[in-house]
């Protein structure tokens, strides 16, 4: 499904700010894998997702999605295969455009845009139904500007947009981190439902260890641009937060010093 092999990425090469973000990274995902990704700040989690999405070019290695080599494919072309939700709720939507216009653009992901009407009447009904299931009352505000929505509402909408056309792979980068605990829980629940329903393959970065253990069928831990721990199936179900902390210290030889993770 997804195959990352020997991928490396160094930012600001040859300057004082040189930073190796990914170091000979390897990862293989099977169809319908739902993988949670954890790791300290700067471990390379976002970079891994950005490399898969083609936000920046990779320095070495190959990335295949569904056996298509996408290593050199520009971001907008890869978008056909990918659904993405970002940490920043502002990143996934166009604030000055209507809710339904945002959905209509997402609905056309991977299709050629032409001079036909940007949104049809029939689509609007589909969007009405889709918004209803979010349970946020957005279905009655379809022609409101997205800029008027709260972060949580925008994030739920982005999630809906990312999965309106079934993506081959769903990339979630701490998509609940900016939300209050209740909204975060709701968006996470929604994520779970949608992934299950559409039988999606997904990569979800999170700082919440409990979520990382509970959700999905596989968990990977990253450190300094590498995967240092990879666990799935029953073994993953039995994990405790303390196990993860221990693993981290063992693999990295450092104390785990991330308040956000310890608190959760």
């Amino acid at each position: 499904m997804l195959e990352i092999s020997h991928v490396s990425k160094t930012f600001n090469k040859g300057t004082v700010n040189e930073k190796k973000a990914l170091d000979d990274l390897n990862l293989k995902l099977k169809e319908e894998d739902f993988v949670t990704v954890i790791g300290g700040n700067g471990a390379g989690k976002s970079t891994m997702l950005n490399m898969v999405a083609g936000v920046y070019p990779i320095d070495a290695g190959t990335i295949r999605i569904d056996s298509t080599d996408v290593s050199l494919m520009p971001e907008y072309k890869r978008a056909r295969l990918l659904g993405r939700v970002f940490q920043d709720p502002m990143m996934g939507t166009a604030a000055d455009m209507e809710i339904q216009e945002n959905l209509a653009m997402a609905y056309r992901r991977g299709k050629n845009r032409g001079l036909s009407w940007g949104i049809t009447k029939k689509e609007k009904e589909t969007y009405h139904e889709a918004l209803k299931r979010l349970g946020l009352g957005l279905e009655d505000r379809m022609s409101s500007k997205v800029g008027l929505l709260s972060g949580g509402q925008r994030q739920a909408l982005t999630l809906l947009m990312a999965t309106l056309q079934r993506p081959k792979l769903l990339l979630l980068d701490e998509h609940t981190a900016a939300l209050d605990p209740r909204t975060a829980k709701k968006v996470l629940e929604l994520t779970r439902e949608i992934v299950e329903e559409q039988k999606l393959t997904a990569l979800m970065v999170t700082h919440n260890m409990k979520d990382a253990i509970q959700i999905g069928n596989r968990l990977i831990m990253m450190h300094e641009g590498r995967i240092i721990y990879d666990v799935s199936g029953e073994e993953k179900q039995k994990l405790q937060v303390s196990d993860l902390l221990e693993k981290f210290e063992e693999a990295s030889g450092e104390e785990f010093s991330n308040d956000r993770m310890l608190l959760s």
């Binding site: 999405a53 971001e75 907008y76 072309k77 978008a79 056909r80 990918l82 993405r84 502002m90 990143m91 996934g92 939507t93 166009a94 604030a95 000055d96 455009m97 653009m105 997402a106 056309r108 992901r109 991977g110 299709k111 947009m161």
Partner: peptide, 14 residues
């Protein structure tokens, strides 16, 4: 119009 709003989104939508 969306490009003037959020380029990043437009690219991520193909």
């Amino acid at each position: 119009r969306a490009t003037g709003n959020n380029e990043n989104m437009v690219r991520s939508l193909g």
